[in-house]
Structures are given as C-alpha cells and as structure tokens.
Amino acid sequence: MTAEINVEHLGKKFNEFIALEDVNFSVHKGEIFGLLGPSGSGKTTLIKVLTAQLDQNKGKASVFGMPVNEMKRVENKSRFGLLTDNSGLYKRLSVEENLMLYKDLYGLDDSAIDEALAFVNLQDARKKKVSKLSKGMLQRVTLARALMHNPDLLFLDEPTSALDPGNTHHIYKGLRKLNEMGTTIFLTTHDMAEAETLCDRVAFLHEGKIQAIGAPSELRLRHSDQSMIVELTNGEQHTLPLNELTTAERLEEWMRHQLIQRIWSNEPTLGDIFMEMTGRDLR
C-alpha cells in the first residue's frame, strides 16, 4: 500500500519543551487516519510539521513521497487542504467573498463554491458576513475552504469541535464520501466517538509520543478482557468470560427462565484504553 504520509523518528522541541519525540507512523493512500490525544499532546505541532509550517529537529517526514519541505512549493500546495483551529477568515467579507478568494487562488470554477457550501450545509449563509457567524458556522466555512479544491490529502485539526450533533453527522457523511472518492484524511481529535465513527486507523499521542496505533476495533480487542456483561431483569449484572462453556450454561439457564434484559461486550472504549495507557483522560 502506498504511504501518503510517512514519519520516522520525528522530534520537535520548542526551546527546552519537547513537543514531539520519536514519532513513527504511516498514513496509507485512501485512509482516514485519526490522531487522538488531549490538548497539548502535540497534535497541532505534528500537523504543522507535515504541512511545512514548522521544521522538525529530528527524524524524517514525507508527504506524497516527498520531504515535507516540498509542501511549500506552489504546485504541491494544491494537493492538500488544511483546517486549523484558527479560522483565518476575513471578517468584513461575506462567506461567498471569502470562498471566492480561494476559488481564484486555486483556479477553480464558480461551481466549486456551491459544492463546498453544500458539503458543509451552509448554502443559506452564503451572503452572510463572517463576523456575524457562530463558532460552528465559522468552522464549517473553514472546512468548505479546506476541501473546495478536492485535495488528495486533507489535514483536519479538530474538525467538528464546535459543531452541533446534526451538523457533525452531516460533516461525517461528507467526509466519508470524500474519502470514498479517494481523498486521504488525516484528522486530529480528542473525541473518541469521532475517531471510532470516522477513522480506519488511529494513533494515541500523549506528551509528544505515540502510545499505540491500530484500527479502533483492533485496539479495543487488544485491550479487551474477553468478557461480556449480562444484565438480568432483576437489575443484577454479571461479567462472564467469553468462549467458556460455563458461560454458555449460565446463559442457557437465564434464557430458559427469560431473565435476560441486556447483553453487551465488555470491550473498552478508545477513551478507556487511552486512560489505561497514559493515566489521563482524552479531553
């Protein structure tokens, strides 16, 4: 599989503060890769290194098979899109005027604005001044700007942090569709539900170090204690080991007497795994 992003032994220091340390991972072409970590774990620094906004102090990083410094070249800037926590929108201009600027900078047709606004469900706010938009709307305009040129690779730094559930769902659907059309997505989040819903693979970043990498289901399975929880109609909960005959016997017994209310897997969430590995919450 071709690696769209490849990072080897990457390190970044700000004076004495170590922001990234010995970071290693690859993002494959066509993948949605999530970087999970709490605020200050180094997620944004990593995106800045990968988009040539910061130089690394150690190691190597490449995007599209080229050293990250090549991302500064005009021809390569059109190949990726970037959504950051700072909107970078012109507040005195309307949503349309903001997108118009980038449509011209990327050399796109007028239809690119319509498509981008439809993607983020903001067609009605087209003529609205950016200074009048809510935080969630600002985030959606920034996302529209990041993907209006159909980039090969999309860097999204906390893409839905300011959105309501309805719009979050709409954006997830759009991102999935974009991914199906071939766009590789690299996103950072501290929302484990977002990571589980969207990402093919995730990496946990804590204090600048990668703690684990894998598909969400694979990580959950790896940290699972191979048990299930059964809740009976009288409210009692029983934790039973999987793949043991005694479990089957007890289940059969309860079923015969119609005592089972609910059964669920005792797999940990990504948040639980992160907590187990680092001793702290994802937020």
């Binding site: 906004q53 005009v74 800037k77 970078g88 900078l105």
Partner: peptide
C-alpha cells in the same frame, strides 16, 4: 492578527 496571512501562505499563492 486574524491569522488570514497564514491561510494565504498555505494556499497556492506564492
């Protein structure tokens, strides 16, 4: 101040 210069720098504008 409004971080728009960085967005311009990240666009294809040289």
């Amino acid at each position: 101040e409004s971080n728009t210069l960085r967005s311009l720098m990240m666009s294809p504008a040289s």
